[in-house]
Design a protein around this nucleic acid. Structure first.
Lengths: 147, 147
DNA sequence: TGTAGATGTAACTATTATAGTTACATTAAA
DNA sequence: TTTAATGTAACTATAATAGTTACATCTACA
């Protein structure tokens, strides 16, 4: 199963804020239009990102801004914020393996460390990419586009 | 969303074959008992692994064996075989971002290479672990268990 | 102070993938 | 020819994603 689009939508949101905040108030409706998704879906994602102190979302009057310098937000921070995987484990285990079988009894002993290593490799790579990288590219591609 | 338990079940199957093939014919019912899953679920996984030439599954009379030396099967081979992610992409993208918006129009240009890098980091780590590693540990833990 | 326009969130629906299950045709060997 | 297995279609149950409606709440400003 793939990792939820909440993650790519969240990144899209940051790129939109950076691109449009000078000229537009960034509302959930505005973002929903760019992402092409439902405003309530956007608001749920904004709510997660706000809870993680990555965004400031203004109640009442509306408007969203990025809460930290771009090079201090990693893709891992965003990924964690929108909770793309349950209980933090990338790999889903079959429930209740037969403990009367020596393999069933030990399957977690055998696999947990190896799968965690794999998960960590992925998460480390997510941590190595910051919003600065994303937004530098965003600005570049938009400039190329206008030319 | 987590990666399907088909993957961990498949690994479990290899460990079972290695552990029990001397004394037992390895059938889908036998495996289902150790994994604690439905025999048809097991057969579907066996079918994938057979198609990828990782296992030999005997029709009619039954019985399953491992098709290659243990150090020549990686966790990545197994992962690919049981097709845990759709169309080979780990990250699910929101469909049809608004191409009238410069961010929506470029979101794939901006993100595809970065997310592929993350996916590759995970897959490389899966490739670095072979069934030999898994089964060495299986034998070790089972021996410890019996002591 | 009331209202306009936004967020926050509950409740529901639709869709999709996983996993389990029943049933049965097919196969291979004894 | 019988037995015991695989292969697979068809269906169900469950759970997560994503969309939608509805409305309470909040804040600034006219």
């Amino acid at each position: 199963m793939q990792i939820s689009s909440r993650f790519t939508i969240a990144i899209h949101i940051f790129a939109c804020i950076d691109t449009f905040e000078k000229d537009n108030k960034i509302t959930s409706d505005f973002l929903a239009d760019s992402v092409n998704a439902n405003p309530v879906v956007i608001r749920k994602i904004l709510s997660s990102l706000k809870k993680s102190h990555l965004l400031n979302v203004q109640r009442g009057t509306g408007g969203t801004t990025i809460a930290k310098p771009l090079d201090q937000i990693t893709l891992y921070d965003i990924y964690q914020s929108v909770e793309c995987i349950e209980n933090g484990k990338l790999f889903h285990f079959h429930e209740n393996p037969n403990t009367n079988c020596p393999v069933g009894k030990n399957i977690h002993n055998i696999l947990d460390d190896k799968l965690l290593r794999v998960q960590k490799a992925m998460e480390d790579e997510l941590s190595a990419i910051t919003l600065k990288d994303v937004i530098d590219d965003t600005r570049y591609y938009i400039k190329e586009c206008i030319k």
